[in-house]
Design a protein around this nucleic acid. Sequence first.
RNA 1: GGUCCCGUAGCUCAGCUGGAUAGAGCAACAGCCUUCUAAGCUGUGGGCCAUUGGUUCGAAUCCAAUCGGGAUCACCA
Length: 601
Amino acid sequence: MYFCGMNIEHFLSSSLSPIINELFGLTTNPNDIILQKTKKEFEGDYTLVTFPYIKAAKATPEKTGELIGEQLLKHHSSVTQFNVVKGFLNFSLSNDFWLTEYKSISQMSNYGIKEANSSGKQIMLEYSSPNTNKPLHLGHVRNNLLGYSVATIIKTQGHEVIKVNLVNDRGIHICKSMIAWKLFGNGETPQSTGMKGDHLVGKYYVEFDKAYKKEIQTLIDGGATKEEAEKQAPIMLQTQEMLLKWEANDPDTIDLWKMMNGWVYDGFGVSYKKLGVDFDKMYYESNTYLLGKEVVQEGLTKGIFYKKDNGSICIDLTNEGLDEKVVLRSDGTSVYITQDMGTAIERFKEFPKINQMIYTVGNEQDYHFKVLFKILAKLGYSWANECYHLSYGMVELPEGKMKSREGTVVDADDLMDGMVATAKETTKELGKVEGFTTEELETLYQTIGMGALKYFILKVDPKKKMLFDPKESIDFNGHTGPFIQYTHARIKSILRKFEGNLQSILISDHITLHEKEKELIKLQYEFPYILEESAKTFNPAVVANYIYELTKLFNQFYNECPVLKEENNTIKEFRIKLIDSTASIIKNGMTCLGIDVPERM
RNA sequence: GGUCCCGUAGCUCAGCUGGAUAGAGCAACAGCCUUCUAAGCUGUGGGCCAUUGGUUCGAAUCCAAUCGGGAUCACCA
C-alpha cells in the first residue's frame, strides 16, 4: 500500500477532510486521511476505507461511503464516479485529470530527480572497505553495489554525498600473505605470473594457511596440545615478528608491504572499474589505526571510561542493555573500536559540514556499531545521532556461509567474467546485433552481464540475507536486469524510427486514454515518491522493484497499443511522448542501481 | 545462556507505518512472431503467510509465547 503521490494525495485529502468533517462533525485534518490505490479487481483510481468514520457517521460502512462519495462527486469536477464495496469507497478521476497530470510529467527533464541545492545535506557514506590480503568475493560485491547505489539514490534527493573507502591495509592478516610470499613466492610478481595482483596476494594468504596447518599438525604429532601448537608454529611466530617490524617502521618490511599492497590496489582498481563503483576519498587504516587514543584519555578524565586493575580501559554499557567494552588494551594499544572512534571524530573535523555518516557494513557487525555510536554519544558528540549503520545481510551459498580460508567463496572477478560471458553467449544466440562494431559488442556484453548481476543483488531488501546458487546461473528472463534493459532498448528502437520531432510534440487535450496508458501515467507519477522512499530507507530494492513494475506494464502496453502504426496522429504523438518518458524513468531508475541501459540489444 | 535479525507457492523474492479474493519471476503445462525487437505477451495449476494465543469491526502486517534458522556477546578486525 503506497502513498499515492503527494499532489494527488494532498489534493484529495484536502478535499475529503472538509467533507468528512462537515458530514460527521469531526475535526480530521488532511494528513489523517489515508488513501490507497484501488485494487485492480475494482473499478476506480483511489480508495478510502470508511471504517474509521462509521462511529461518527452512525451509519453502516456502505452508507458512510455513499455519503462521502456523493459529496465528493458534487464538489469535485475531477472525480467522475464512485462505488462502494463493503467499507471501501472507490472513486475514479477523470480522463482529463490524468492527461493534465501527464503533461506536467512529460515536460520535466529528469522527472523525480532533484538537483543538488543549498538546502540539501552533505552526507558521508562509507562502503567497500576491503582487506588487502585477498581478492574481493560475492559478499564484497553486495557491499559495493549497495553502497554505490544508496549514494546515488541519496543524491537524487538533492543531497551531496561523499563516498569514502576505508581500506584495511595493515595487521596480522596482511603479514600472513607477506610471510608466505617471502617463504614460498620465489619472487613471483603479477607481471611474471600474469595474475591479477589481488589474486596473487590472495594465493599466498591461502599458502600461509596451508603451511600453518601443516606445522600445527607436526607439533601435535610431536606431543604438543592443539593450543600450544597454534601458538608455537614457526610461521605464526615469524608473522607476529613481522607485524612488530612493520609497526617499528622497518624499511625492508615496509617496502615489501608497499609492494604487495600495490599489487592488490592494481587488482582492486580493475574490479572496481568492472563493478562501476568509485570513491571520493580513500582512507587507509595504516594512517588511522593510531587515532582514538587521545579520545580515550579524554573520556577517562571525564569519567566515561575507567581503568581496570589490569590496566585496560573500559566503558560500562550495561545500563544501556549492552556489555562492558574494552577501548584500550592493557599494553596501551588500540582495539578495533578505538580506531573507529578516532576515525569518526577525525572525519567530522575534516568535513565540518557533514550532517550524516553512513557505514555500509554487514549485519554481523550490528553490535559493534551500536556500541560505537553509544560511546560517541556519551563522549558528547552531538553528531553521534546522525551516524547510521547501513547493515546488510550475508550472501549465503547453498552449502552455507562463505569462508575464504576454506575456499567456499565465489570470487568477484570470476563471477563478473562469467556473467559477461553468458551475456555474450545469449546475445549471439539471439542474433539481433547486426551492425555493431566489435567494441560496441564488448560494451554491450559488459552492460548486460553486469546488469544481470547487479539487478539480481539489488532487487532484494538489503537487510535480508540472500541466497546465491552458483550452479543455477543468474537468469536473463523475467524479473531481471536484462529484461529491463531489453525493454529500454525496445522503446529506443521505436523512438529511432519515429520520423517526427519528439521535442516539438504538444500533447492534445482531447485524448481518451487507453487503460494501459492511464496505468502508465499513474505509475510514472509515483516515481519521485519511490525515490524518496528508497532514499529514506536506504533501500535500492524499492527502486528496483518499481522499475520492474513499470517495465512490465510497458510491455503490456506494447502488446496492446501500437505506437508507430497508430493511424490517429494525435494518439501516435501522445504515445511517442509516453514511451519516451517511460524510457527515461527506466534509465534514471537503473542509474540509481548503477546499471546501464543500452540503446539497442 | 543474554541480545539482535529472519521463517510468505517446489525455488528466488515482493507485500509488513493494520484494510477487499496474499502478488511477481523461475520451474511445469497450454496458447501468441507475414504487425513497432518473442531477452516479450496471454492463460492454467501451485499458499493453514512456521505454530499457538492476544489486540481490533478487520492481522501475512501490531503484541506475547513456542518451534525452526542465522548473527553476535574478544585485550581479532
